[in-house]
Nucleic acid binder design. Structure first.
Lengths: 361, 361
DNA sequence: GTCTTTCCCCCAAACGTTCGCGCGGCCTCC
DNA sequence: GGAGGCCGCGCGAACGTTTGGGGGAAAGAC
């Protein structure tokens, strides 16, 4: 949709032509890209006519047989349009920028894969950049400079000045996985309320009544949302709210938070972690305290990243389809650049992957 | 090095100017990018002079005070150069393309992170694309079309026509993690001989003499290299060579191959897997056969991806520093585009992360 | 037969940079 | 005091594409 791709040229990057016939040494010229005017010459039309013939949208204004001649010439010469020149003229680049907080986090691989899988078939390339908090503005700026057609951000904080600034600019943006509260901007995120509710309901069904929560960072919508969802669920059931903050979505903070939780309230029989790694931290603490995960204490994770089913015991976790999340974000962006009204907020329903860490085998 | 970055402008993408003073409604014009000629006008110099003043390399030919005036004007207006226009003129794009076989594979996150961390500070952006075998040529072609300054490929097979074609073209390339045999092209890969040797030596020290190998795909240099390294090691020790092929670097193939291995030779006490996931497959089979990993049978993985230390028992694995590998590949590429002689083959020494899957606690 | 319409196609101006070339002025040197 | 050299800067073309406008020829209406 973004671009009309119909060039068949498959010569990879080098147009090897022999010049100097016979007398001198055979010179192989490299990198002599064939340009639109070459095609025009070969088809014996003006360059502008060639352009119109190649571009599906304007093709209607040129006589069919001329179109054929141009297309044939383009195919023959292996013509490939120059994206920079086109972008300069049209001020579009057929590319989108993606900003990821941490590429090593297993969560973002699938998101990017989903984005990729949706955008590349549209002839749109994907610029990926990692950005810590302090980088974020600079990184986003450099993407905007490159005239990306849109921006997908996975770095949003609940209040995020950079996102606010970007949302006022003309470049369409979509948030993914995390959302921002201070301003209304399109976002594709998981439904944390439903997810946490799935975990809690599951635990309640198993008979648990004293359920703790290892929370994630409160400046992120995911951490905050899951915490409030947990509190709401406890309230609905009439159970006590028992929360400890993990200072980051990592194993060590989960270990610490769980320790504090269990020291404060030893009667806890189940822990809902805001994230898989926090949950694995809970595993460690439980073991260190001599409690067997799955039988003595139930633990649930959140996200269900790869290899969780290979843990011992395999971990029950709220499953989020990140690949689909990425794809939806990409589609949302495509809709925006296409001028279509894009949904402002899309909630992805999670499911629950029940494993031995709650059922005890 | 690639680009001389010195523009301070921090206005994110929108130049909001008020036009119409007082009478009409205040119109906020958006997206009116400030261009080089604006800067030139403000500094009262010709656009070419402004260009020279901004570009560190040509700055020497313009009078210092003029440079200051231009720089001040640029800062004042928040000028940001147009990469597309620049790229069109200079036929460079300050960007490199990265082709990854599978973004969901936890191995490639760190590689990309390493690449990213090295290139972005150089003012060079990173275009990431995923490519299956059949895609590879098309994907690489589209990157070349975009005039990337270089290409980093993680998709190489031992004999790979696409890589061969690309190596003849003018775009510099670097292979990462996997290498190609049919042609000499710069590559940054792990030293599989050393890695496998580390694992085998470790097992021999523990007293094992009947050691099997679950091999990876033989069309990949990693699968093939580790297999031959294993064979060599067995030969050196005078042990029997016991290999079964895993048809892919995944859990299920590892499960099957290990089953075949143990059925064929039940006396095996240790399994060297060509990959972590294959090793986890071996875990499963071992358990299914009633053998306790770490005590009844030792298993080693290869790569040491994240969360391996959280398995039960934690898995001993050859550790490859993929982040560094990515960084080295990026540096190699930078050297190439800088015209410097880049090392043709760089071997990264792996280490061994010893855990309970071999030591039994 | 002329005028209008329709249909193709060419012309040329952009888009925002970079860079070779050439020109004027100041300094230096004899 | 005049000639040459150098320094600083302006001029304009080019990179490859898109796109509005204009023009010529064939076709249709009267």
């Amino acid at each position: 949709m973004l671009c009309n791709r119909l060039y068949w040229g498959s010569i990879v990057g080098v147009q090897a032509e022999e010049t100097g016939q016979g007398n001198g040494p055979t010179v192989v010229r490299m990198g002599d890209r064939v340009t639109l005017s070459d095609v025009a010459d070969a088809a014996e039309v003006h360059v502008s006519t060639a352009s119109r013939a190649l571009n599906a949208s304007s093709r209607s204004v040129v006589r069919p047989e001329t179109v054929d001649r141009v297309l044939a010439a383009a195919a023959e010469l292996g013509y490939r349009p120059h994206p920079l020149a086109r972008g300069l003229r049209t001020s579009r680049s057929d590319s989108v920028g993606v900003v990821i907080p941490d590429l090593e986090n297993p969560l973002f691989g699938p998101i990017v894969a989903g984005i990729e899988r949706t955008l590349v078939p549209e002839g749109c390339s994907v610029l990926i950049t990692a950005a810590a908090h302090h980088d974020e503005e600079e990184v986003a700026q450099s993407l905007v400079d490159r005239r990306v057609d849109g921006l997908i951000l996975a770095t949003a904080q609940r209040v995020d000045p950079v996102v606010e600034a970007l949302s006022k600019a003309s470049t369409p943006i979509v948030l993914v996985n995390r959302q921002v509260e201070s301003v209304d901007v399109p976002a594709v995120v998981g439904d944390d309320r439903i997810g946490i509710r799935l975990a809690v309901d599951h635990l309640v069904e198993l008979g648990h009544t004293t359920i703790g929560h290892v929370a994630g960072p409160s400046e992120l919508s995911t951490g905050y949302g899951r915490r409030t969802a947990y509190e709401q669920a406890m309230h609905d059931y009439g159970f006590r709210v028992l929360v400890e903050d993990g200072l980051g979505f990592r194993v060590a903070p989960g270990e610490d938070a769980t320790r504090r939780l269990l020291e404060r309230e030893p009667s806890i029989t189940a822990v809902v972690a805001a994230n898989d790694l926090l949950g694995l931290g809970a595993y460690r603490t439980a073991r260190a305290l001599g409690r067997r995960v799955g039988s003595d204490i139930a633990i649930t994770g959140y996200n269900d990243v790869a290899m969780l089913d290979l843990m011992e015991p395999p971990m029950t976790a709220v499953h989020v389809n990140f690949r689909r999340m990425g794809a939806m974000a990409a589609e949302n962006l495509l809709a925006q650049v296409g001028g279509a009204p894009a949904p402002s907020k899309e909630l992805l329903k999670p499911t629950l992957s029940v494993r031995a860490s709650t059922t005890g085998d």
